[in-house]
Each structure stands twice: as structure tokens, then as C-alpha cells.
Design a protein around this nucleic acid. Structure first.
Lengths: 118, 118
DNA sequence: CTAACAGTTAGCCAATCAGCAAAGTTTTTC
DNA sequence: GAAAAACTTTGCTGATTGGCTAACTGTTAG
């Protein structure tokens, strides 16, 4: 019984997409792409309150997109390099499926043109 | 005043990621990748009620991932081929940013090793 | 013309979200 | 050891989600 592409509901993928669906979180990621930062450093430019930013950070961390570590009273946040891989994989998978479908459409169209050539 | 990568908050991207964040919607997409389908055809295998599936479909449609058209009493849903492009673009952008950061890290590590070679 | 079919609308529910302010907590700094 | 800094927790809002049933609309088949 082959279940290869019966991927079920992948919770990790849902967490990733959900984390990326928020513009504030995406801009936090962009910021962290340049350099690691403290929570306050991320709060200041966005204009959002500290608790709000904290919440976004924990969503990002649960999705595996960032790591955070506390040293003294300072928490430093950094990107997790490979974290977007599952998204890329899913995307590749979809593109190949969609292209296969387009291929079949082409084949059909071609056959239809030959058969029904006025 | 250059604003090139100050992409602001891209609403389309948020819609796309949000649409993809739900496993039911992803499985609907997988189904439609094989062939277009009627609403009932999509409802049956998921086990969800018709209105629920309708809601998912409208989320997918607003994100631009699918198109739907009604012929008589039947609505047919199909994938929109290029719809994932913005996601791929954002992903590429991130990967290049992240890799640049890793590059700088490498440079730093190398310099540190030279300097502090015990 | 009536019945079955396919979809749609309306309205309800519990859960989650994204934001906040206010009140802790734990380091540092002076 | 008091005060400032940097979170962290708590608890509150209003909005959105994802699910449902029940009732409604339009289309086709008999």
C-alpha cells in the first residue's frame, strides 16, 4: 500500500505558512536576516509594544524559523538557516504537479486540434 | 530616495501564505492539481460540509490560487498556474539574504580563527 | 410540474489572533 | 542597595477562523 504523496496534514508546514502570513513577522525575519538582534531592537522600528513583538517571536520560534537565547537580561534572536527548506520542498512538489497537469492539458488540446480540425 | 527592498507589507503575500497555512486548503489544492473539480467533488473526500468547503474555496480564490466558474448549477474549480510565483520570489529573496548573512559569519569566523590562533 | 441536485446564504459557536496596558521578574549599573 | 534596563506574565479587547446546521435559490431530470 503506497502512501508516498498522501502527505496527510503536515503540522510543520502549517506552522511555517502561518508564521509567514503576517507582515510584521516577515519584516522581523528580514531584519534578522541582516544580523541577530535583541527583542527591544526589533520592537523599536516596528512601533509595536514589547509584548506584541514577543508574541510574534514565539510564533516564529515555534515554527522553527528563529532561535532565541537569553544571556543575562538580554534575549538575542537569530534566524535558523535551513528553516525555509520544507516550504521550498512543498513549492517544488506543487510546481511539478501543476506542470504535469498543464502537460496533460497541452496533450489534450493538441489531440483536440488534430481531431476537430474544422 | 531608494526604497528598493523596503517592500513594506505586501498584502498579496499575506493572503497567499494565509491560504496555504491550512491543511484542508492545501489538500484541496493537491486535488485540483490533478484535475479541475466541482465543489461537491471536493467536499466528499474531505468529509467536510459543503459550506465549509465553499469557505476554503473562497479563501483560495481571493488569494488568486484558484479560479472558479459556474455553468448551470455546477461550479467548477481549477488551479491558477502562476499563482505561486510570488511565494517563490519571496523565498528566493530570503534565501539570498540569509546566505549573505552566513557568508559574513564565515568571514568573521575565519578572521577570528586567524587572529586568535592560540 | 415536481423532485432531486448543486450550490449558496444566514446565523451560530468555540478557538485563535493581534494588539494593548499594567504589573511582575531578573539582571546590571551606579 | 536603589534604580534603571530588558524582558515576561497577565489579562483585557475586538476581529477573524474554521467548523456546523438549517433554510434558501436556482437548474436539471423524470
Amino acid at each position: 500500500m503506497i502512501v508516498s504523496h498522501m502527505a496527510k496534514h503536515d503540522p510543520g508546514l502549517s506552522l511555517l505558512f502561518h508564521a509567514l502570513a503576517d507582515p510584521t513577522r516577515r519584516s522581523i525575519l528580514m531584519g534578522l536576516a541582516e544580523r541577530p538582534a535583541r527583542v527591544t531592537d526589533l520592537s523599536a522600528p516596528t512601533g509595536f509594544s514589547l509584548p506584541t513583538v514577543m508574541r510574534h517571536l514565539s510564533v516564529l520560534e515555534e515554527a522553527g524559523l528563529i532561535t532565541t537565547a537569553k544571556d543575562g537580561r538580554v534575549r538575542t534572536c537569530a534566524i535558523v538557516p535551513g528553516a525555509l527548506a520544507p516550504v521550498q520542498t512543498w513549492l517544488d512538489e506543487q510546481r511539478s504537479l501543476w506542470e504535469a497537469r498543464l502537460g496533460r492539458l497541452d496533450a489534450f488540446a493538441t489531440k483536440a486540434m488534430k481531431k476537430g480540425s474544422q
